[in-house]
Design a protein around this nucleic acid. Structure first.
Length: 460
RNA sequence: GGCGGUGUGGCCGAGUGGUUAGGCAGAGGCCUGCAAAGCCUUGCACAGCGGUUCGAAUCCGCUCGCCGCCUCCA
């Protein structure tokens, strides 16, 4: 029983059918024109969570994510920097994947690039023309919204009621202001491709509909992206599929915005936080936790202060995991955790379950109930693994000189030479460990906060 | 102007009729040589005003605020 909110129906609905074994997922990927910011990471983290969740439940998930590697912004940036659009695209795409790796985002199964699919798009546009749903004018080919049976299913707007005054100036050659370009004719000095309707570039909305159908089929399980893609992007993809009688996505999902000071984080407002920098400063796992602990459809306030708080709560989890030997997973508790994710990816409830285990496990260790505590470590670790947030499982390795220093410090404590004991503690802590004196002797744990954050395993 | 969302304690963030969400920060305590970590205790939180109800953050009405989409945008 896995449910997810569907933008089309406006309600939480079944995501997978009984007996379903495979799951096809298309997520609108980046336009590689600049560095990713915190908003981009949230989309990727959300669909990475969904993908892992479904796969851990036993489905074969096929994730396709496009890369828009030619568009107006890439081209103008290339002109500004006196280079080619290909160079710009390659540069920022490399940064994109490196950054997502550090967030623990698994690579998609396929990453079609717009420039590789131009021929397919040309054929697709020809189909639209053949059925009379598109027309050619001076500056390109346009989709005729009037030929779309039910335009506005996702947006849920009555387009007849729209105020024309608010629209940017309309191309007077278009039959309707709503009609959108599926092929943009350009002059041959600009980057472009030959097509029957003249040299030019495909429209963005045509890119995604063409590639999703080509790689996932005429009907696939889920089409997703950020909230801002609902209109016009996804509405227009759907419009093109509709006029060709393509069933298209069974389910539509959209992730809420990352905000800063209550406003959508976006380039135009200038309130973005660079994702790569945030990961460098707080660690990929802390950023990932910051995304996941909120409900994916809600707006999420992120700032350096919030990320710092999130890092503190991650430390709480990690400190617990270091308290003892891992035991046996409590499968009932894990099941409760998974059930909350089944409920429209209810990660807030999932984390409240996880933190409850942490607190109870800490009590176990305080009371020397090592078996019970160890079982809770195993359970928490299983939860973290399920959602791609487990720490890299490098074992706690204590160098000989450090264990010598610990022994010397314990002796100094017995001798009540606290000056020496404190000097030794400083020495130990300089090596990235934290000293904990307990009734049963000194324990060491890793100083995760002040040491470089380990990169994440993406294959757990 | 149209459509949609939202307003929860210092901060982040769940919750949709009656019991502690959770985390971070703060205060007090336990433990400790001192710490750290952990545990315990602690916050009359639900934008405002009316209404329904035995009982509302949760339902209804009105008011106010904020945000988003309508243009490339994750």
């Amino acid at each position: 029983m896995t449910t997810l909110y569907d933008t089309m129906t406006g309600s939480v609905t079944q995501l997978i059918n009984p007996g379903q074994e495979a799951f096809s997922l298309y997520v609108c990927g980046p336009t590689v024109q600049d560095r990713p910011h915190l908003g981009h990471g949230r989309i990727m983290a959300t669909y990475d969570l969904l993908r892992r969740h479904l796969r851990n439940k036993g489905l074969a998930v096929n994730l396709v994510m496009n890369v828009t590697d030619v568009d107006d912004k890439i081209i103008s940036r290339a002109q500004a920097e006196a280079t080619t659009y290909q160079a710009i695209a390659h540069h920022y795409e490399a940064i994109w994947w490196e950054t997502m790796d550090r967030l623990g985002i698994e690579r998609p199964d396929a990453t079609p690039h717009a420039t590789e699919w131009v021929q397919g798009m040309i054929e697709f546009i020809q189909e639209l023309l053949d059925v009379g749903a598109a027309y050619v004018i001076d500056d390109g080919v346009y989709l005729r919204i009037a030929s779309v049976p039910h335009y506005g299913l996702l947006t849920k707007q009555d387009f007849d009621q729209l105020q024309p005054g608010n629209r940017v100036e309309v191309n007077p050659l278009k039959e309707s202001p709503l009609d959108f370009a599926i092929w943009k004719r350009t002059d041959s000095t600009e980057p472009g491709f030959d097509a029957p309707w003249g040299f030019g570039r495909p429209g963005w909305h045509t890119e995604c509909v063409t590639m999703s159908i080509a790689l996932l089929g005429r009907s696939f399980d889920l089409h997703g992206g950020g909230m801002d893609l609902i209109f016009p992007h996804h509405e227009n993809e759907l419009a093109q599929a509709q006029v060709l009688g393509v069933p298209f996505a069974r389910h539509w999902a959209h992730v809420g915005f990352v905000e800063m000071n209550g406003e959508k984080m976006s380039k135009s407002i200038g309130n973005t936080l660079d994702l790569t920098d945030a990961i460098t400063q707080f660690g990929g796992r802390a950023v990932r936790l910051a995304y996941l602990r909120a409900y994916y459809r809600s707006p999420l306030e992120l700032s350096p202060a919030v990320l710092n708080d999130t890092l503190a709560s991650l430390d709480r989890i990690d400190n617990f995991l270091d308290r003892g030997e891992s035991g046996d997973v409590n499968t009932d508790t894990l099941a409760t955790f998974i059930e909350s994710l089944d409920n429209d990816l209810d990660t807030p409830t999932a984390f409240s379950i996880l933190f409850e285990q942490v607190r109870e496990g800490n009590i176990d260790f305080d009371r020397q109930h090592l078996k019970e505590g160890g079982d809770k470590i195993a359970t928490v670790h299983a939860m973290l693994s399920w959602i791609g947030l487990a720490p890299s499982d490098d074992a706690l390795v204590i160098p000989g000189e450090i264990s010598d220093a610990v022994k010397a410090r314990e002796q100094a404590k017995r001798d009540r030479d606290y000056t020496k004991a404190d000097q030794l503690r400083m020495l130990i802590e300089a090596s990235g460990f934290v000293v904990s004196d307990t009734k049963d002797g000194t324990q060491l744990r890793r100083d995760r906060r002040n040491s470089p954050r380990a990169s994440m395993n993406s294959d757990d």
